[in-house]
Amino acid sequence: MFWRLIRRDLTLIARSPAMWMPVMFFVLVAALFPFAVGPDARLLGRIAPGILWVSALLAALLPVETLLAPDMEDGTLDQLASRGVAMELVAVARIIAHWVGFAVPLLAALPAAAILVGLDAAQGWRLALALLLGTPALAALAVVAAALTAGLRGGGALAGLIVLPLALPVLIFGVGAAAPGALKLLAAASLVSLAVAPFAAAAALKQD
Rank of each mutant, 00 (worst) to 15 (best):
W3T: 12
W3Y: 09
W3H: 12
R4A: 14
L5N: 09
L5C: 11
I6P: 12
D9S: 14
D9Q: 13
L10S: 14
L12K: 11
L12H: 14
A18M: 12
A18C: 09
M19H: 15
W20C: 13
M21I: 13
V23I: 09
M24K: 12
M24A: 15
F25T: 10
V27T: 15
L28S: 13
L28Q: 11
A30Y: 11
A30N: 11
A31M: 14
F33G: 01
P34Y: 11
F35G: 06
A36V: 04
G38A: 07
G38C: 06
G38V: 09
D40V: 09
L44G: 02
I47R: 01
A48F: 06
P49G: 04
G50P: 07
G50R: 00
W53P: 00
S55F: 04
L57A: 02
L57H: 00
L57M: 03
L57W: 01
L58W: 05
A59M: 00
L61Q: 05
L61D: 01
L61T: 00
L61A: 03
L62H: 00
P63C: 02
V64D: 01
V64I: 04
T66D: 03
L68I: 00
L68R: 08
P70N: 04
D71A: 03
D71F: 07
M72D: 03
M72Q: 11
L77A: 00
L77W: 03
Q79W: 13
L80G: 09
L80E: 14
L80R: 12
A81S: 14
V85M: 14
M87C: 13
M87S: 14
E88F: 00
L89M: 13
L89P: 00
A91E: 04
R94K: 12
R94Q: 06
I95K: 05
I96R: 03
A97V: 07
H98E: 03
V100K: 02
G101E: 05
G101L: 08
P105D: 10
L106Q: 07
L106S: 10
L106T: 11
A108K: 06
A108R: 11
A108S: 10
L110A: 12
L110R: 10
A112G: 15
A114I: 09
I115C: 14
L116R: 02
L119C: 04
L119E: 04
D120A: 04
D120M: 06
A122L: 13
Q123D: 15
W125F: 13
R126A: 13
R126V: 01
L127S: 12
L129Y: 07
G134D: 05
L138P: 04
V143C: 02
V144H: 05
A145N: 11
A146M: 06
A147I: 08
L148T: 06
T149F: 06
T149A: 07
A150N: 10
A150V: 13
L152M: 15
L152H: 12
A157H: 12
L158R: 15
A159W: 02
V163S: 05
L166M: 10
L168T: 11
P169H: 02
V170A: 02
F173D: 00
G176S: 15
A177P: 03
A177G: 02
A178D: 15
A179K: 07
A182C: 03
A182I: 07
L183F: 05
A187E: 07
A188H: 05
A189C: 08
S193P: 07
L194R: 03
A197R: 03
P198C: 10
A200T: 09
A200E: 12
A201S: 13
K206L: 07
